[in-house]
Design a protein around this nucleic acid. Structure first.
Length: 203
DNA sequence: CACCAGGTTGACC
DNA sequence: GGTCAACATGGT
């Protein structure tokens, strides 16, 4: 299995690095098309200003937010989006929202501005701890390299059908694919070994 | 200097 | 249903 090989080669990644579920959610928006190192800087600044909390972030000055997250790019839309999402969770306690059935929770997250498929699944998996496999650009490219193309949902269904429905495995596998791709794959092609392994030994 | 990073949205077909 | 420009900074 590719999962076992990646785990063996790279070791556990322990994603998502964050102190709280709310930090995961904010980070999920900030990391869109952005290197994690820049997200860490922004998270750090938000923490210094005690803004990594639902009500505080919801009430924060938009100009201050823009300054604090400028290093993440798309800073104007991201500032208004994390503020909007903070307002939602200030009104709807996370514990209540996360206790919704998985599909309902996912739809609820998708209804928030700034939350698309990947971000919704990152929140469901890494913040709420429920089994939804996250498909990102690296995963999409890896699949394309072995001849499998499809919509986000189609790729996700394929993964979820191939591997055990286990939150810890979902978390690690996605993280491993990202780290492996960053280390060994080019922009338009994947490492030959993993492709061969995927074809011959399965996910 | 060109290219890309752990995407999403709204407009349009 | 799908495609596509726009969104923006920081590092190689």
């Amino acid at each position: 299995m590719v999962y076992d090989r990646l785990l063996d080669e790279l070791g556990p990644q322990y994603w998502w690095p964050a102190d709280t579920a709310f930090e995961v959610i904010v980070g999920a928006i900030l990391t869109q098309q952005t290197k994690w190192i820049n997200v860490e800087k922004a998270i750090c600044g938000l923490k210094e200003h005690c803004l990594l909390e639902e009500q505080a972030l919801a009430d924060a000055d938009i100009g201050l937010l823009e300054d604090l997250i400028r290093c993440c790019g798309f800073y104007r839309q991201k500032a208004s989006r994390i503020k909007g999402i903070a307002s939602f969770f200030a009104e709807n306690p996370m514990e209540d929202v996360f206790s919704l059935p998985l599909d309902e929770l996912r739809r609820k997250m998708l209804s928030l501005k700034g939350v698309g498929n990947e971000t919704a699944d990152s929140i469901v998996l890494y913040a709420a701890g429920k089994p939804k496999f996250v498909i990102d650009a690296y995963t999409t490219r890896m699949m394309k390299c072995i001849g499998i193309e499809g919509s986000y949902i189609q790729l996700q269904q394929r993964f979820e059908a191939e591997i055990p429905e286990d939150v810890e495995i979902y978390k690690e596998y996605h993280a491993l694919i990202v780290e492996y791709s960053k280390a060994f794959c080019g922009r338009n092609r994947c490492n030959e070994c993993i492709l061969k392994d995927l074809n011959e030994n399965g996910y």
